[in-house]
């Protein structure tokens, strides 16, 4: 474990806390893409299959349980909670995310570390996570104004993988045989997808104005 990875995991956890806070405090999920939340639940379920077979550390196990439980709780909330589900922007959240699932799964069949079910699902979860934010970014562009908590949620979600890139550079420099090309390349693509959001987020922060993404 290094400081970059810890910062990444804490930022990731913070993004989930901010999202839960928004939904719980405002009893509303307007501006949140259910499709992105479903993709994240799928990412964690596909990646953490080794939860019961490979014990890495107490920290690792606890974080995996927290990520799976929170992502499923958010999907449950947006689909079934009587009050919250009414505020879901169903007509704006129209990204065809099944293509993302199919495309990344095919890619995982072709590009993986080992042609085993666990490795294919792990690679699938890495590729899917890289594009999972797309429905959310599309929804933000369609819904025009972005409320603060939603903007912070997306910002922390993008920042966490940027910390992971620093972690991979650090591990590459300090560990003799460290190569994680799948996670590295996918993580760079993932962070790149946030680039324009980061730009508009920085502009809105600098001008102390409302965050607006160009349609």
């Amino acid at each position: 474990m290094n400081i970059f990875r810890l910062a990444g995991d804490m930022t990731h956890l913070l993004s989930i806390i901010v999202l839960l806070l928004k939904i719980y405090a405002t009893k509303s999920c307007s501006g949140i893409s259910l499709k992105t939340q479903e993709l994240y639940a799928l990412v964690f379920l596909a990646r953490y299959l080794d939860l019961f077979t490979d014990f890495i550390s107490v920290y690792n196990t606890i974080m995996k349980v927290v990520f799976i439980a929170s992502s499923l709780a958010i999907v449950w909330c947006m689909r079934l909670h009587p009050l919250v589900k009414r505020s879901y922007d169903k007509e704006l959240d129209t990204f065809r995310h099944y293509f993302l699932i199919g495309g990344t799964f095919v890619l995982a069949l072709v590009l993986n570390e080992k042609f085993t079910l666990q490795e294919i699902l792990w690679a699938f979860s890495i590729y899917l996570e890289a594009v999972a934010i797309l429905p959310q970014l599309v929804l933000l562009q369609r819904s025009g104004n972005v409320d603060n908590l939603t903007g912070q949620y997306v910002f922390f979600l993008g920042a966490y993988r940027a910390f992971y890139i620093l972690n991979w550079i650090y591990r590459y420099l300090t560990e003799p045989r460290f190569t994680r090309w799948i996670a590295c390349v996918s993580g760079i693509v993932q962070t790149g997808i946030y680039a324009d959001f980061f730009y508009y987020y920085f502009i809105s922060w600098k001008n102390n104005s409302k965050l607006k993404l160009p349609a």
Binding site: D54, I56, F67, W122, N167, R180, A183
Partner: peptide, 10 residues
């Protein structure tokens, strides 16, 4: 398997 081959990252 080798510890390094295990996915030790979240």
């Amino acid at each position: 398997s080798e510890p390094s081959e295990k996915h030790d990252e979240l």
